[in-house]
Every structure is written in C-alpha cells, then in structure tokens.
Amino acid sequence: MEVRTIKVFTTVDNINLHTQVVDMSMTYGQQFGPTYLDGADVTKIKPHNSHEGKTFYVLPNDDTLRVEAFEYYHTTDPSFLGRYMSALNHTKKWKYPQVNGLTSIKWADNNCYLATALLTLQQIELKFNPPALQDAYYRARAGEAANFCALILAYCNKTVGELGDVRETMSYLFQHANLDSCKRVLNVVCKTCGQQQTTLKGVEAVMYMGTLSYEQFKKGVQIPCTCGKQATKYLVQQESPFVMMSAPPAQYELKHGTFTCASEYTGNYQCGHYKHITSKETLYCIDGALLTKSSEYKGPITDVFYKENSYTTTIK
C-alpha cells in the first residue's frame, strides 16, 4: 500500500517557510505537534488534498525554529505562539472599519479597549522592536488589523473576551517599542525636605499616572512627601515624541487643539466601556464603527496623549 502524501510549508514567522512532505494517514499533531492554519487549530486533523502548498504555523520545537521565533517575536515564552494563534482565530472574524481616516474595530468580545489602543497607536510616533509587531502594525494602518490585535493580546497575556485596560495595554506595548531616546527629568520640591531631581528613561519617561493635564504637570502637581507634608512635583525636561497622561476616570474637559487623542471610560472596574476622542479640525468621538463630532467635550476621561518633541522648564 502506497503512502499518500502532500507537500506543505511549516513556519513560526510566515517569513521562513520549511518544506514538509506530510503523510495523509496521520494527523498534523502526530507529525508536527500543535499546528495552526489561519489561526485555526488543526492539530487533530489529517492532511487533505486542499492543504497542498498551504502554510501551517507550528510551535518552535527545534533550534532553527526557536531562533526564527525569537528573532521575529522577541520572546522565548513557549506558550506565546499558541496564544497568538488562538487569538487570531477570533480577531480574523472582527470587522476593521476605516473611521475618520483611522483603522478602528467594530465592537465584539469586549474589544473596546483594543480599538482605543489601536486608534491611539496610529496617532503617536512609535516604532516597535519585534519585527512581528512592526509588520502587523503597518498592515493594521492599511486596514488589516487582525494579526496586530492578536499579537497585542498575546504580548499582554490576554484572551479574547476578557476586559482590558488601555493604560495597561499601552504599557505592555511600550515595553516592546523603541523608547531608548526618551528621557524625563522631574523635580520634587518640599518646604521641609528641599528639592530632589529624578531622571527617568524609556517607558517611565512617557507615562504618568495622577493627572490628565500635561500643562498642569509642567506647572506642578501636589504629591505627598515622605515627611508627610505636601510637596510639588513638576516637569523639568521632556525628550520624547509623545507623552501619555493618565488618571482614574473623572469628568474632564478636553479643549480642541490642546491634545492629540484621549480615552474615555464609562462604567466601573468590573464592567465598563471605552471610547476614543481625537482632536482634528474639530473633536471626534470614535466608538467602534461609530463616529460623532463636537466642538467641545466633557466626560469621564482616563488617558490623554500629547505630541511632544523637546521641553525644558522655565521655572527657576
């Protein structure tokens, strides 16, 4: 009895394709271990004539594949690729409408935090270190965002349907971005203890939790000093293409032309909904596939993004 075979390709990165001759009487799992086709788990399936010449994702289970996976995804987590594939199996079914010149995501599976993050990423200057993220990001900007969303979920250790947080998501993504040249110098002034300067680099240099107003941050924000008295913390120097200011959701007025974009969060910790506000020729609110415009805006804002380049204080 002759062994019926077909020729397929296996890959971990969709760049390096490895030619395989597979036995049609055995499952993919018996031949390769966990195997995925377009995100779908085909591990328990036997090869079919229609699979001839198709590319299958496999887990990096030998040295060659491990090197290829690390170079593309910059992670050695053995569960990463499987999590990416199972997320992709959902995100490829989502709709990605162009809204006001940006790629958004039609609401499904509690994905409003991903839509808000995706919209924000198209408006701030950011370059990702893992080629996987950078490639998928370019495709997302062009309207094909399924891979990018699935990668975000995998890097953030999230599953489809789980509630997510924009600030946490951005923080994970910033860790995989090139923020080497970003720098922030802060000064804390206390009447009792004097003053202390701190220099922050990388992710810490672009994120701040405690106030939404970048102007206020430049002037000074009140913080408790270690001595128990009130101290003032203010920005001395900022070198970065953008800054992200966050605070627990509270009524906040966004003035046209003073910011790049913002995240609105309605609801409580267990259950809520994100919308995205962007400042173009007027203010726009993007909620999944829905767009509304207004000249002014007041609502429960939790993150505001500002364009920056270089700032030095005039406070002496």
Rank of each mutant, 00 (worst) to 15 (best):
Glu2Met: 11
Arg4Ser: 13
Lys7Cys: 10
Thr10His: 08
Thr11Trp: 06
Val12His: 06
Thr19Cys: 08
Val21Gln: 15
Val22Pro: 10
Ser25Asn: 12
Thr27Tyr: 10
Gly29Met: 13
Gly29Tyr: 11
Phe32Leu: 12
Pro34Thr: 12
Thr35Gly: 05
Thr35Trp: 06
Asp38Met: 10
Asp38Asn: 12
Pro47Asn: 04
Glu52Asn: 13
Leu59Trp: 08
Tyr72Gln: 09
Tyr73Thr: 04
Tyr73Val: 02
Thr75Gly: 03
Pro78Asp: 14
Phe80Cys: 04
Gly82Val: 14
Gly82Cys: 14
Met85Val: 07
Ala87Gly: 06
Leu88Tyr: 15
Trp94Pro: 02
Trp94Gln: 05
Lys95Trp: 07
Pro97Arg: 09
Thr103Gln: 04
Thr103Gly: 05
Lys106Cys: 09
Ala108Tyr: 06
Asp109Asn: 09
Tyr113Cys: 00
Leu114Asn: 01
Leu114Trp: 06
Thr120Phe: 05
Gln123Tyr: 04
Glu125Gln: 13
Asn129Gly: 09
Asp135Glu: 13
Asp135Trp: 08
Asp135Lys: 11
Tyr137Gly: 03
Asn147Cys: 11
Val160Asp: 01
Val160Trp: 04
Glu162Ala: 09
Gly164Asp: 05
Asp165Tyr: 05
Val166Asp: 02
Val166Phe: 12
Leu173Ile: 08
Gln175Gly: 10
Ala177Ser: 09
Asn178Val: 06
Ser181Arg: 14
Leu186Gly: 05
Lys191Gln: 13
Cys193Arg: 00
Gln195Pro: 09
Gln195Glu: 13
Thr199Leu: 07
Val206Tyr: 02
Met207Leu: 07
Met207Glu: 05
Thr211His: 12
Tyr214Glu: 00
Phe217Leu: 15
Gly220Asn: 01
Ile223Gln: 10
Ile223Gly: 13
Pro224Tyr: 12
Thr226Ile: 11
Gln230Val: 13
Lys233Trp: 08
Gln237Phe: 11
Gln238Tyr: 01
Ser240Gly: 06
Pro248Asp: 07
His256Gln: 09
Thr258Val: 06
Phe259Arg: 00
Ala262Asp: 01
Thr266Asn: 09
Thr266Asp: 12
Tyr269Trp: 14
Cys271Asn: 08
His273Tyr: 00
Tyr274Phe: 11
Lys275Ile: 07
Thr278Val: 13
Lys280Asn: 15
Lys280Arg: 14
Glu281Gln: 06
Thr282Asp: 12
Asp287Val: 01
Asp287Gly: 00
Gly288Asn: 06
Lys293Thr: 14
Glu296Asp: 15
Tyr297Lys: 05
Lys298Gln: 09
Gly299Thr: 02
Val304Met: 00
Phe305Leu: 07
Lys316Val: 15
